[in-house]
Simulated scan of single mutants.
Amino acid sequence: MTAGLQARLNRIGTDGRFLIVPMDHGITLGAVKGLKDIESTISAVTAGGADAVLTQKGIAPRVHPNKNGAGYIVHLNASTSIGPDSNDKRQTGTVEDAIRAGADAVSFHINVGSKFEREQLEALGKLTSTASSYGIPTLAMAYARGPDIDEHDAESLGHAVRLAEEVGADIVKTAYSGDPESFKHVIESTQLPVVIAGGSRSSDRETIEMARGALDAGGAGVSMGRSIFQHDNPESITAAVSAIIHENEDVETAMEHFR
C-alpha cells in the first residue's frame, strides 16, 4: 500500500473503522427527504461523527463547505428507480473526475448475479486499476442481486465481497446477512475491510443493532444512507452509530444519544 493510498484511507475512516453516509440517492430516487437541503444534512451527519460522506460528482460544490473536515467519496455509477431495471448501473464519471471534485476515494456499485454482472465486473476492474495508479482508494459496493438470489444470503454475500478483493478494491460494502453468526462467513471471505449497507429506513434500534452485529462479526463499520440522512435528527442517529463504530458501545448505551 502506498503512502498516498493509506493517507486517503485515513481521511475516510478512523483507526480502520468507517462510518460513511452515502447521499448519492438523488439519481436513484430523486430529491427525497434529506437531499433537498443536502447542505444541512451533510453538516449534521459530519457533526454527529460521520467519517465521510458520498455523493455523485456534480454535488461536490455543495459538499465541501459543509462537511466539517470529514472525508469525501465520489460515486461513479448509477441507475434510477423509474428506469427499466435498477440493477443496470451505468458509469457516471471517472477517477479523474473524482480527483477534480476533491474526492479522497471513489466508489462503484456491482450487482453480483445480475444479468449486468459482466459489464459491471469489467468496469470495476478497470476502475480499480486507474484509481490505484493515482493512489485513490476504491470502495466497491458489492451486492448479491439477481434472479433467484437472496440478497441477504451469507454465501452469496461472501462471494460478492471476495469478488471485490479479487479485482482490486480497497474497501467493500455489502448487505447485512441479518445476524453476527452468519455474517462471520462474509467477513472471513475477504481480507478487505467490510462495511454494511443500511438499506431502507429502519427504526433507530434496528439501525444500531445492525451496526453492533456487523462489528461483533468482525466488520469494519457501516455505509448507511437513508437510515441516517432521512432521519428526523440526522446528527443524533449518526452520533449513536458512531458510538458503536468508534467507541465500541453496546446498543443500550448508544441509544442514550437520542435522550
Score class of each variant (00 low, 15 high):
Val95Pro: 01
Glu96Gly: 09
Asp97Gln: 10
Ala98Thr: 04
Ile99Gly: 04
Ile99Thr: 01
Ile99Arg: 03
Ile99Asp: 07
Arg100Ser: 12
Ala101Thr: 09
Ala101Val: 09
Asp104Ser: 12
Ala105Leu: 04
Val106Phe: 13
Ser107Trp: 08
Phe108Tyr: 14
Phe108Gly: 01
Phe108Glu: 01
His109Asn: 12
Asn111Leu: 03
Val112Lys: 07
Ser114Trp: 06
Ser114Leu: 00
Lys115Ile: 05
Glu117Gly: 00
Arg118Asn: 13
Arg118Tyr: 10
Glu119Ala: 09
Gln120Gly: 09
Gln120Pro: 10
Leu121Arg: 15
Glu122Met: 11
Glu122Tyr: 14
Leu124Gln: 10
Thr128Cys: 10
Thr128Arg: 01
Thr128Ile: 09
Thr128Ala: 08
Thr130Trp: 01
Ser133Ala: 12
Ser133Asp: 14
Ser133Gly: 14
Ile136Glu: 10
Thr138Ile: 14
Leu139Tyr: 13
Ala142Pro: 00
Arg145Ile: 15
Arg145Val: 15
Pro147Arg: 01
Ile149Cys: 00
Glu151Met: 14
His152Ser: 04
Asp153Pro: 12
Asp153Gln: 09
Asp153Val: 10
Ala154Trp: 00
Glu155Asp: 08
Leu157Ala: 02
Leu157Ser: 01
Gly158Leu: 07
Gly158Arg: 03
His159Ile: 15
His159Arg: 15
His159Ala: 14
His159Trp: 14
Ala160Ile: 05
Ala160Glu: 07
Val161Ser: 03
Leu163Trp: 02
Leu163Cys: 05
Ala164Val: 02
Ala164Trp: 05
Glu165Thr: 10
Ile171Glu: 11
Ile171Ala: 08
Val172Ile: 11
Lys173His: 03
Ala175Glu: 12
Ala175Gln: 12
Tyr176Trp: 09
Ser177Pro: 04
Asp179Val: 04
Asp179Pro: 08
Pro180Cys: 15
Glu181Asp: 14
Glu181His: 13
Glu181Val: 13
Ser182Glu: 07
Lys184Cys: 00
His185Leu: 15
Val186Pro: 06
Ile187Thr: 05
Ile187Asp: 00
Ile187Trp: 04
Ser189His: 12
Ser189Ala: 15
Thr190Asp: 11
Thr190Met: 08
Gln191Thr: 15
Leu192Glu: 09
Leu192Pro: 11
Val194Ala: 10
Val194Leu: 08
Ile196His: 06
Ala197Tyr: 10
Ala197Pro: 06
Ala197Asn: 10
Asp204Gln: 13
Arg205Gly: 07
Ile208Gln: 02
Met210Arg: 14
Met210Val: 07
Met210Phe: 12
Ala211Gln: 01
Ala211Ile: 02
Arg212Pro: 00
Leu215Thr: 05
Asp216Glu: 13
Asp216Met: 09
Asp216Ile: 03
Gly218Asp: 03
Gly218His: 02
Gly219Phe: 03
Gly219Gln: 06
Gly219Leu: 03
Gly219Lys: 04
Gly221Asp: 11
Val222Asn: 00
Gly225Lys: 07
Arg226Thr: 13
Arg226Lys: 15
Ser227Lys: 12
Ser227Phe: 01
Ile228Ser: 11
Ile228Val: 15
Asp232Phe: 06
Asn233Gln: 00
Glu235Ser: 08
Ser236Arg: 15
Ser236Leu: 14
Thr238Asn: 08
Ala239Ser: 14
Ala239Glu: 13
Ala239Gln: 13
